[in-house]
């Protein structure tokens, strides 16, 4: 296993990577790689793959991975399976498991090109450390100029974790009754160090930015804990969070579909339940 580490001033990260046990770490260090741009990075990765000729290339299904992998795959004529939740290895043969229809079905793919590529869903594969004394080598290809220029990077306000990477997500829906209700969800999230999500209904009502939307036409998440407050549990929403390890549903409607999937359900007014829950969590956390 070899790792390509690309960026500007990233040599120091090689040490970090060693503890995950790769055989070799190639470092492409250049000020031309300071910003992520598709074309410059695609050139570096494609050149590295051509040099190494691996049977399998893996990237994260992150914003960068999603942008980069198909571009490189098209350049190299490699088959690509995106957003994998599992890779089966059978002898020298791989098969790739990728949820389709936003998780309403699970598909297994085979790739018939010599180089096979896949992007991996964040938060799904366990991270394990391994013994290893990887050698660190320089990789200095000619870097293609990028026609796109990054003018500005805007960090999301606040220090809550990114939805797709959060261990815990607290989400609100139509049951909040209005945009102000998200104040309570944010308070709960901050008590747990969680990200804040939203149902489509709340986004469509203009209560929350679409970046927070969880579901078929929003983000697909798989946290350890998903707390749905005032969310009925429409099929599109379940498609986005159904693979969460543990689901808690808080809803005043006993017929709400969320109770059909929740590990723990509380039937009641969220404006009573959530404040009490925040109190209790604070008490437990000391």
């Amino acid at each position: 296993m070899k790792v390509l580490l690309a960026g500007d001033n990233v040599s120091g990260l090689a040490e970090e990577l060693k503890k995950f046990g790769p055989d070799e770490i190639a470092v492409a260090n250049s000020d031309q790689l300071a910003d992520y741009t598709t074309e410059s990075y695609a050139g570096v990765l494609a050149d590295y793959i051509k040099q190494e000729n691996p049977s399998l290339v893996l990237l994260g299904h992150s914003a960068i991975g999603k942008d980069l992998a198909p571009r490189v795959a098209a350049r190299l004529g490699a088959g690509l399976v995106s957003d994998c939740i599992k890779i089966n290895v059978d002898g020298g043969d791989f098969s790739f498991v990728h949820p389709i229809y936003a998780g309403k079905a699970i598909a297994t793919y085979k790739v018939n090109s010599a180089v096979k590529m896949a992007t991996l869903r964040p938060n799904v594969f366990p991270i394990e450390e391994a013994e290893g004394a990887a050698s660190v080598v320089d990789f200095a290809p000619e870097i293609a100029a990028s026609r796109t220029k990054v003018k500005e990077v805007i960090q999301q306000a606040g220090d809550r974790p990114e939805l797709t990477e959060a261990d815990i997500i607290c989400s609100g829906g139509r049951g909040l009754g209005g945009p102000d209700g998200f104040g309570l969800i944010e308070e709960l999230a901050d008590t747990l160090g969680a990200a804040v999500g939203s149902s489509r209904a709340a986004v469509d009502a203009g209560w929350r930015d679409h970046q927070a939307q969880v579901g078929q036409t929003g983000k697909v998440v798989s946290p350890n804990l998903y707390i749905a407050c005032g969310i009925s549990g429409a099929i599109q929403h379940l498609a986005g969070m159904g693979s969460s390890k543990c689901i808690v549903g808080i809803n005043k409607d006993p017929e709400a579909n969320i109770f059909n999937v929740a590990d723990y359900g509380i039937e009641g007014d969220l404006y009573k339940v959530v404040p009490a829950l925040i109190e209790k969590l604070k008490e437990v956390n000391g």
């Binding site: 992150s62 960068i64 990054v150 003018k151 990077v153 805007i154 999301q156 990114e162 797709t164």
Partner: peptide, 8 residues
């Protein structure tokens, strides 16, 4: 992008 946005 993850954790925010960028202007291109």
């Amino acid at each position: 992008i993850d954790g925010g946005s960028e202007v291109i």
